[in-house]
Nucleic acid binder design. Structure first.
Length: 894
RNA sequence: GGGCGAAUAGCUCAGCUGGGAGAGCAUCGGCCUUACAAGCCGAGGGUCACAGGUUCGAUCCCUGUUUCGCCCACCA
């Protein structure tokens, strides 16, 4: 790259290609040094705050994080430039099970288990791991350019947040909203912990449905029950049938002799039973099935646990004790078959719950757990959303949100692992009382005894993250941060944690702060591969953000994510697009290089010329008007979270208006002898470039900062420059119309050239036939520019005239473009094209005429639409006439 | 079983409250026109999944169908 630079050392200060790696490192360090990411706590300004969805401390940056944090950074940078007191709070989540797993694996490689170390040592070990390796993702966020206030980085287990967690737990307990209960939970036999309902994933599997004969205790008959899990029959404490099921009315007084155990169990009548399913009789295992648990409660059935925490059959399983649950299933099936009690086995596809961490089949089981009564909390969250105190984007999520909140169950918050917030509850060995306090008690407040035992369980990780928006701002202290930044402005996250996290933040925020945690929620899409598949290591379709950054640069990668971030549900990431946007960054870079070449010696004060564009040449007024429109579009898109439109508007403006037309157009001015022309061009060039760099800085911070620093004059950082605002003085419809005409004419002539295979460097003679006097004046005025842009020796502009036989011809608006051709033209090909064109126009005309002749249309359609149709008709007629004319002309040449 | 979403150019996607569809990449043709060949100038390419309905008019609204995807749910 340096080699190309030295090709022309005098002319260019910037290297020919954008070298992102060095630039990105340099500017990020500079931003950190100057503390530009720090919130100023200036209470006079309006606050804009975002709390980061804390990534797992074990995490490495994946493409979902990349998207999530790019969008947040865009908003924070935008608001910072707008002059808001902007704060982006970063941090990480202790991620209970995930982190514990990592360290346990480490121990396993040393042939140790956490039990060998004991709880205290194990936790020390996890902390050590966290200190050493836990910062990975934070550094990766920095490479993404994230402008977080790093001095405020938090961790869900740091002292302040731990204090908040205890405070919340104790208050909820005192308010009766936390209780400890015997309950059926989803148990992961591998992780040895309870899982929340939403931590269980249901996958359909091909299983079997076993139909088992349960004989009556008196030997007078039998009832057949169906189950997918025969091993649970050892824990059956009833058979249930529907109360209205006539087939089974006689069972009221009959007991069932449970096979293989000889226990006698009752028959109960319960509405839950589906009469149509199987035989309409249901075996009831209250200790190992959620439904059966409920039935058990209603009929006061005993709960017989037949498995232990590892999924191994226990003493209650009698001869089966010691068998793994699946081995036990096989044995039971064999024994039932031997006893001729198995009526049949059917193939059966059904959903099985699996642990979201390790995919082990979850075993529903009863145990003592801690719960939050969520109903009252959920109701407040629903009310807040209904009242519009929180706005959800995109709005398709409202219904889903309400639906979930209506059906929410109590939240099991205890986890049987070691890494996490240990539940602040102690049992007194003396009096047996439960003590729940913020600070560790020395003695029992009830009996004064000193033997206190703290709960072994820790809290669900989501419990602490639910407090994140206020705990990170210093709660329960009454801090300036809280009064300044709470409620935060917007939460940006992926929709898959709407319930895990977002809803719970609403509940906790409303309960403890009496105010919503954020005004807006923006739920972005899930990033998939280009075929719509989930990215996963096993399928090998993962796009690694860090590799993308190395390869294409952070800005190109960020721009791609932004361009993809429409308000949908999934984003299909295509690496080719990243490459495309890398070229865009390079294009921008080179436009700056061009500008630099002409502006090197310029006084930046010349931009004052652009403040009032009235006296400027048309192209300048046009680009300022387009700049103004782009500013307006970009701001609107940012304000409404339409990120893809931000990218789109900038891309189109920079490449296709600023570069393709404006820069080409002003080349002549910049080379002109006329000092006024040169100054105007320089002034507007610099003005537009400044505007566009600022406009794009939130999306592509590095390259904009680099270019900005190279522009003439002494400059501060672009990241603290004011964001562009629209100027009504820049809006200029007339200039836009004029330029549209000129650009149309130029493109038209170029098309003729290309189609006639005129060599690009060859000069042509062109004639423009323009009956409209106003347009003719414009064409005459800009003839030199047109000539340059179409490479014409002569450009004749006339009111009317005949088209010579051998000529390329086209119609733009009502201007006829004529290029006489010396060489051969492809008469047959041309005629073919004209014929095609003619039928197309005739069809269109038919439709338009039909429309205008339709009384209904004329009566009902708005005047503007009718006028548009009329214009269209006139235009089609004119084109049609010209097409027929051309056909006749060319036919003569055949 | 409920709920939600998607179906638009070869590919990946836009298309705001209904007025004959756009971009990038890919394809084809031509250019080293000194900011950029990581580029420039052009071109081709679409029954907007299917069938109805509402409307003067439907890619857009309604109903149904097909295909795909997601979420929730207690049918053993």
């Amino acid at each position: 790259m340096q080699a190309t630079h030295s090709d022309n050392p005098k002319k260019y200060d910037l290297p020919k290609g954008y070298e992102f790696a060095e630039v990105e490192r340099r500017w990020y360090l500079r931003w950190l040094e100057e503390k530009t990411f720090s919130a100023r706590m200036d209470e006079g300004k309006s606050a804009f705050a975002i709390v980061i969805p804390p990534p797992n401390v074990t995490g490495v940056l994946h493409i979902g994080h990349a998207l999530n944090n790019t969008l947040q950074d865009i908003l924070v940078r935008y608001h910072r430039m707008r002059g808001d007191n902007a704060l982006w709070v970063p941090g990480t989540d202790h991620a209970g099970i995930a982190t514990q797993n990592v360290v346990e694996r480490q121990l396993a490689s040393e042939k140790q288990s956490r039990h060998d170390l004991g709880r205290e040592k194990f936790i020390e070990r996890v902390w050590a791991w966290k200190e050493e390796k836990g910062g990975t993702i934070i550094n990766q966020l920095k490479r993404m350019g994230a402008s977080c206030d790093w001095d405020r980085e938090r961790f869900t287990m740091d002292d302040g947040l731990s204090r908040a967690v205890r405070e919340v737990f104790v208050r909820l307990y005192q308010e009766g909203l936390i209780y400890k209960g015997d309950y059926i939970v989803n148990w992961c036999p591998r992780c040895h912990t309870a899982l929340a309902d939403d931590e269980v994933e249901h996958d359909p599997i091909d299983g079997k449905l076993y139909h088992i004969r349960y004989p009556y205790a008196d030997g007078s008959g039998q009832v057949v029950v169906a189950t997918t899990r025969p091993e649970t029959m050892l824990g059956d404490t009833a058979v249930a049938v529907h109360p209205d099921d006539e087939r089974y009315q006689h069972l009221a007084k009959i007991g069932i002799s449970l096979p293989l155990t000889g226990r006698t169990i009752p028959v109960v009548f319960d509405h839950h039973v589906q009469r149509e399913f199987g035989t309409g009789a249901l075996k009831v295992t209250p200790a190992h099935d959620r439904d059966d648990y409920e039935i058990g409660l209603r009929h006061d059935l005993p709960r017989l646990k037949v498995m232990d925490d590892r999924g191994v059959m226990n003493q209650e399983a009698g001869p089966y004790a010691g068998l793994d649950r699946f081995a036990c299933r096989r044995q039971i099936v064999a024994d039932l078959t031997a006893a001729d009690l198995l009526e049949k086995i059917e193939d059966y596809r059904h959903a099985v719950g699996k642990c979201y961490r390790c995919a082990t089949v979850v075993e529903p089981t009863t145990s003592k757990q801690w719960f939050v009564s969520v109903r009252p909390l959920a109701d407040r969250a629903v009310a807040a959303v209904q009242q519009g105190r929180i706005t959800i984007y995109p709005n398709t999520w409202y219904r889903t949100f309400y639906n979930w909140m209506e059906n929410i169950r109590d939240w099991c918050i205890s986890r049987q692992i070691w890494w996490g917030h240990r539940i602040p509850a102690w049992t007194c060995e003396g009096c047996g009382q439960l003590i729940v306090t913020v600070s560790d008690p020395d003695t029992c407040p009830f009996c004064g005894a000193t033997g206190l035992h703290q709960e072994n369980d820790v809290l669900d990780t989501w419990f602490s993250s639910a407090l994140w928006p206020f705990s990170t701002l210093g709660w329960p202290e009454k801090t300036r941060e809280l009064t300044t930044f709470y409620p935060t402005s917007v939460l940006i996250t992926s929709f898959d944690i709407l319930f895990f996290w977002v809803a719970r933040m609403m509940m906790m925020g409303l309960h403890f702060m009496d105010e919503v945690p954020f005004r807006d929620v923006y739920l972005h899409a899930l990033v998939r591969d280009k075929h719509g598949k989930k990215m996963s290591k096993s399928t090998g379709n993962v796009i690694d953000p860090l590799v993308m950054i190395e390869q294409y640069g952070t800005d190109a990668f960020r721009f791609t994510l932004t361009a993809f971030a429409a308000q949908g549900r999934e984003i299909r990431m295509d690496e080719e697009r990243i490459d495309g946007y890398r070229r865009f960054i390079n294009k921008l870079w080179n436009s700056a290089r061009f500008a630099q070449m002409h502006l090197a010696s310029a006084d930046p004060a010349i931009t004052a010329l652009a403040a009032d564009p009235k006296g400027l040449a048309c192209a300048h007024r046009w680009i300022l008007s387009r700049t103004n429109a782009t500013i307006s579009e970009v701001r609107a898109a940012l304000d409404s979270y339409n990120f893809n439109e931000v990218a789109q508007a900038n891309y189109h403006f920079v490449w296709h208006e600023f570069c393709d037309w404006y820069l080409e157009w002003i080349k002549a001015d910049l080379a002109s002898e006329d000092a006024t022309a040169r100054d105007q061009a320089k002034a507007v060039l610099l003005t537009v470039l400044e505007q566009v760099l600022k406009l794009m800085h939130p999306v592509i911070p590095f390259v904009t900062e680099e270019i900005w620093s190279q522009l003439p004059g002494v400059r501060g950082l672009i990241m603290v420059e004011p964001f562009p605002e629209t100027h009504s003085a820049w809006e200029d419809i007339e200039a836009e119309n004029t330029m549209n005409l000129l650009m149309g004419v130029i493109s038209g002539v170029r098309t003729i050239r290309t189609e006639a295979e005129v060599h690009p460097s060859a000069r042509i003679e062109a004639t423009l036939i323009c009956p409209d006097p106003d347009k003719r004046r414009i064409l005459v005025e800009f003839a030199p520019s047109i000539r340059a842009m179409v490479r014409a020796n002569t450009l004749t502009i006339v009111e009317s005239g005949l088209v010579p036989d051998a000529a390329g011809h086209a119609l733009v608006q009502d201007v006829e473009l004529v290029v006489p051709l010396k060489g051969l033209i492809d008469v047959v090909g041309e005629l073919d094209k004209l014929a095609k064109e003619q039928t197309k126009l005739e069809k269109e005309l038919e439709r338009v005429v039909g429309k205008l002749g339709n009384g209904q249309f004329m009566r009902n359609a708005p005047a503007a639409v009718v006028a548009k149709e009329r214009d269209k008709e006139a235009e089609i007629r004119a084109r049609l006439a010209k097409t027929i004319e051309s056909t006749e002309r060319l036919s003569k040449l055949r």
